[in-house]
Design a protein around this nucleic acid. Structure first.
Lengths: 194, 194, 194, 194
DNA sequence: TATGAATGAGCGTTCATTCAT
DNA sequence: TATGAATGAACGCTCATTCAT
């Protein structure tokens, strides 16, 4: 009995997420309006807020899910045999995050979980990202003098850097992959000489 | 005549900046409201926008000025003889940037100038930061296999990373300096073996 | 200059009040929606709240104004020569207040000014009511053993009582005037015997 | 069987009332939320409405019960020998009703039963109040020229008046008892002269 | 009886920004 | 330059009440 009711709630939540995804698909993340979502989902506004603390929580969910999809993708791959193939793997996720400035902002905002314990999808993706990457890098042809986790951390740092700069007029449109190449060669490759 | 007018305008601008600084001092950056600023400055709301394109421009000014102060400080120093003294020099600026999450967000937003023409205080600080750092690192006991500008870029990336993580509950309060130490040792030191 | 601007604000306020009055006329007080008012007035919602703290403040204004109109009316009359003519004078105001249960509630809510200093139209009407009535009763053929202000206070008390009971099913539809007659004869007439 | 079911229902109702009383004790009447009550009672929201027509019915019950307690008290007393002892008897009930503005509003709203059929605790208390008071006043040293029921009605009117004014900032904190004294002396005492 | 997810209309709010004077 | 009233589009929220199970 209680289960049936729970089921109904899950269905509603799914309806909301579906509707939101449809809106995003058609108009982008920034253009998403709560009103539009509930209208499409065919539920009341109050219901929305019973399922998501606020609009940001929905965004967290939406974007986090997509980020995780990319991470899942990466997790299935063979360890990269060189910088280029590494970048190739990382790029889709970075492109998602920079498709809209708004999305990048949301991600940054959620990247560190807010003071309290609420670690949402995006924040946990960041954690998982390090884990997956570390595992991956450890098995690649990269420098061995530092902890793989540290290596992964650094890759993350350079990803953020490249993404941030991709919005930057000064760096007049240098593609992220070329930035990444520069960074990662310096960061990951064993150094020949001192 | 024109000079008199200019004088008056400058005075108004100064009044606005003073008022803004007072608000920030008392309530922080995030709590700053244009309304409050103009009230304290004793001018009308419209006047504010005659002097600053938007609120963000004021923030840019306010925060950029402080950041530059720190950079000026650094510029006077001798090149660092090791990682620790480098971090010691960088830390004050990072602490400013992480005093409030909001400030960090503003900085990131401005780190790459939004529109090509408008390179505000924060954006130019970033540019100057690379310049100063590159110059500085080139003369320090660091790796020589990569361009100093690239080294400086990387330091910037790790600064951002450490700052971002300092807001993150997961990284339960590891101080930024210890993160930086880990990062910079791996990034800047000549690598002993291949 | 400033005057012109003030003028504009007054005009806007008038537009809002006019629109509100029109809605009330057509649909009653309870049915009044802020959204409808601003639409009719042709102003933005934000403007409404710049002029009225909240919907209740508008109601206070609207109802208070009408109550005052009735009071103005009374103030022009000759002192009542008997209870009946007194009641005849009081009745229109009471009918306004009981036209809608909602109106009566609003009046009660505002009858005592909220803790703070904000004495709105309705509250001040109550004060004025005592003043006018006292003046009036003093010159009528009523008991002389008590202060006219006290007499007026009592009349007010019985007005409230009669209005409250007019909503009461128990007092199956006894008209307010007959209740008032009973009350006021006992309250205002000189008592013949002990 | 039916009895067992009834038993269970009564228990649930009692749980709800207990929970409600606890909330009121801790946070007052106005702050009472149905959600909080059902949570404390450990039942579902729907159950609440199976036992009380609406939240107001609960309030009616809660407040009416307390009012009746005071009336029971009065009913046991000897007829008052003067105005002061009358006021002394009335005061506790009035203090209950003015503990929170919200409570006073609820009482007024219920003072006349809204729908004919439904005479709830508060409404019936009012009826009983008149009865008890009339009986009581008839036996006291008060005017004899009017019906005791009318006298009691008037006392009620003045009680409401005094309570309403106790919320009023204008009447800067004159205690209810002194207001009542003024009113009741004028209302109840035999008049010496014409 | 009991459950608890869903309802839903509208209020209040926000506050940077604009624009006629 | 300066003024300050007006804008406006959502968002968040409220929370008693209903209803399918």
């Amino acid at each position: 009995m209680a289960k049936a009711i729970q089921q109904r709630a899950l269905k509603t939540r799914a309806k909301l997420l579906d509707a939101a995804q449809a809106v995003v698909f058609e108009q982008g993340f920034e253009a998403l309006r709560v009103e539009e979502v509930v209208k499409r989902a065919g539920v009341a506004k109050g219901t929305f807020f019973a399922h998501f603390k606020d609009k940001d929580a929905l965004m967290d969910q939406l974007i986090g899910t997509e980020m995780n999809r990319h991470l899942d993708q990466i997790a299935t791959l063979e360890p990269p045999k060189d910088i280029d193939s590494l970048i190739e793997a990382l790029l889709p996720g970075m492109q998602l995050a920079t498709r809209e400035r708004y999305v990048f902002d949301v991600i940054l905002r959620h990247s560190g979980a807010a003071a309290n314990a609420e670690i949402g999808p995006i924040a946990s993706t960041f954690a998982r990202n390090v884990e997956v990457l570390a595992n991956w890098l450890a098995r690649g042809p990269f420098r061995k003098d530092i902890d793989p986790v540290l290596m992964a951390d650094g890759v993350g740092a350079f990803q953020i850097q490249a993404m941030a700069l991709s919005f930057c007029a000064i760096h007049n449109g240098e593609p992220m992959e070329s930035m990444m190449k520069r960074y990662l060669e310096a960061w990951l490759l064993p150094k020949s000489e001192g």
